[in-house]
Structures are given as C-alpha cells and as structure tokens.
Design a binder for these strands. Structure first.
Lengths: 208, 208
DNA sequence: TAGATTGTTAATCGATTAACAATC
DNA sequence: TAGATTGTTAATCGATTAACAATC
C-alpha cells in the first residue's frame, strides 16, 4: 500500500473507527455511512470521508461503506491484520496486568518473553510466558525476535532498558514509564500516565 | 485565576513542562529561557511563550523564567497544587498497579476507597485502603467524597459504574476501560490502551 | 431515472511559527 | 547603556469543515 505522509491525528482516529465498526457489526449491521458514523462517533461526516480517503476510496457512492470490509481495510492500513511478538521489561503489577490484558484481549499480539531484575520473580510464569533475568532475556530475544517491547520499569532503569531494546532489534516500544524515551529509528508510544491525570485535574478545576 | 478557553493541546503540554522544569531544578538550575526549554523539549521557543502567555506573563524580559516559580505557576494553573481523593472501581492487577503507583508517586492524590465485585477481594487492603463490595462502597463514598474515580473494569460493567460515578458526585473520571465513556458535566480522561498500541503498529509498518 | 452518498476541491478555522517592539 | 529575552502581533501552515460534481 502506497501511503504518503498522514498526520498523527488521523492515525490515532483509525483504531477508534475500528471500534465503532466492530460494535455496528455486533449489532448485525452490514452497511453504514459517513453520516451515521459521524453521529455515533461525534465527528463530522466530512472528516471521516477525508480521513479514509487518505488511504483510498473504500466506499461506494449512493450506498456508503460495507462495515466488515471497512474494518478489514483499516486493519490492513494499521498492520493489525498481522501478528506481533511482545516482550515485557518490568514485571511489577503493571507489567503483569498488561501482559494478561494482551493475552486475553489481543489475539494479534503474543506475550513471548518477560524480564525482571528481581531474582524471586525469575522462573515464574506470567501470561503463559517465562520471567527471565537480564542475561537470560538478552540471550532469549536474540533467538526469538521481539516485535514490540513493553516497558514498565522505574525511571532509573530506563538507560539500561534502551540498550536492551536497541540490541534486541525491536520494531517498536510501548512505554509506560514516567520518563518519555526516544530511540533512533524505532517508533515509541509513550503512555504518559501522570500527564493524562494532571490534564484531567485541569478540567476538574475549569468547567466550561 | 481568570482563564478563557485554552485548547486541549496546550493543556496536555503543561504537565510536560512541569516534568522538564523539575529535571532542571534537580540539576540545580535556577533560571531558564524559552529557547533552552525549546531545545530540551523539542518544541519552538515561540510556542512555549505562546502557551504560557495564555495564563499570564511568568517571565521577565532579558532574563527568562525562574524554574521553581514557573513550576509552581503551572501547578496552580492545573490545580495540581491541591490534593485529591481517589476511588478505584475494579481491583484486578491493573487497578492494584495504579493504586500502588498513585500511593508511591503522587503525593497530591490519596487512595481513599476501592471497590470490587468479587467476594474474595472484599476486606483485603490495597495501597493502604480497604477493598469493598458495591453496596458498602456506595455507602462509604457518600460520607467520604471522592474527587476522582479510577475505572479499570471490563466493558460489560461500564453502565453500572457510570451510575456509581454520578451518584457519588465525583469531580472527574480516569478511565482505563476499553470503551470510552462520557458523563454529563463530569470530565473524563479515557486512556485508550489498545488505540495507542494500534497506532504504534501503524508506525512500525510505515517508517518514514 | 431519482435519490443517496461518496470522493475531492475549495473555504474556513485554529494552531504553530516568525517577527519585533517593549523592557529588564 | 547594550544585550538578552520576553510578551504580543502578524504571517504561515495544516487540519477541519463545507460544498458539490461524480456516480452508484
């Protein structure tokens, strides 16, 4: 698929389109329109058509969009039609929660390996995968490539973790740490827990 | 403080300013400038001055900004100079992880009450607070007001949880569920786990 | 064919960047 | 005073919205 540059705002709306399409499908609906989607998603019909036409014409004039087909198209655009292996660095409660969430809810993502520096964690199993110490983990990921590394470690461990990600040749990083990281050439999605909390506090104090 | 409408993009940058100011303070730096901040934060100096001047002139011509003072001012704008009580609905691994994270890292947020429908959880303690069943929790929050309700429950429980939030008169909701919610008049921050993951996948498949 | 709804171009709106006078 | 850097206005850029011809 030839895709020119598309803004981040558009990309971040694609998964949301998928979610609403899925719920329409669940209700047994076969077709939809930009008008209907706009209503349930609180967007304008115009924006939806603009967004989709960055990637191609998925609709049909006079008819609208086929729900299942459009969902499949968006999966193809995002790459969520393929499967990805995942490594987890940091197996505290958050790491464990995320690994189990992935295992139970995201069939296209496979929990492959976990790493924790605490000796008592090593050898235990989380979400069907083994928790390893750093050196064992390093070895493991050399033989079993990790597509996406999920980080849930404290700020002070970030530098060593960056090294692991680069050496392991991961394709992307999903970072839940407080410090945002950036790795040359590797896309990173920073989750910004405290930033979302603090902006919520702003809106609590400034009702319109 | 009289604040006219300020766009969400600006509000979401404020916590980030705080974080970089804190790290400058930690390095013992007393003053900074829009130029310096721009460099370390990867923004333009112009944008930083524009952002701050939505709320007032916190700098001094020819000098720049006092680091501690500016941090304090942003805290005041956000409301993060005050303290907030927090209730948690859903005490699975994610709820537990978040409650402990808040307790250990966010002095302005107090874990006050937790709720879980599973009987074996009730009566246990997480992050220094008691896990209650729904009716006990309902009673408790009537007498002990909750400012922010944190939601980590499966999609099918969302409707009943919305009722609890409204009845409990919470000021804001921090939602980690897969379904985004909106409550009339109550600000909600939806965390969108799978949406951030799927947009990461897009960037993995579309390197510039 | 008539009605509906897309794909796409043009207009508008808002956010970011540049420029510069004010002033410490 | 001279140099630096802000606060603020004006210019630019990009994203959203409106309009409409194409077409199923």
């Amino acid at each position: 698929m030839v895709t020119p540059y598309v803004s981040d705002a558009v990309i971040r709306r694609l998964p949301r389109y998928k979610r609403f399409l899925r719920s329409l499908k669940l209700k047994g609906q076969e077709k939809t329109s930009s008008k209907e989607l706009a209503q349930i998603m609180d967007l304008t019909a115009s924006q939806i058509r603009q967004d989709l036409n960055h990637f191609g014409g998925f609709g049909q004039q006079g008819y609208g969009y086929n729900v299942s087909d459009l969902e499949r198209q968006i999966d193809k655009i995002l790459g969520t039609d393929k499967t990805y292996t995942m490594g987890f660095i940091g197996c505290g409660r958050l790491g464990e929660a995320l690994a189990n969430y992935i295992r139970n809810n995201e069939p296209h993502f496979k929990v492959t390996a976990l790493c924790d520096i605490r000796p008592d964690m090593q050898g235990t199993e989380i979400a069907g995968a083994k928790v390893m110490g750093q050196s064992e983990f390093d070895e493991f990921v050399k033989k079993n490539p990790i597509d996406i590394m999920v980080l849930t470690v404290p700020a002070d461990q970030i530098p060593s973790v960056e090294r692991i990600c680069v050496e392991a040749n991961v394709k992307g990083v999903w970072n839940f740490g407080l410090v945002e990281i950036s790795l040359p050439g590797i896309p990173v999605s920073n989750m910004h827990l405290s930033e979302s909390l603090e902006s919520l506090v702003y809106y609590i104090n400034h009702p319109d």
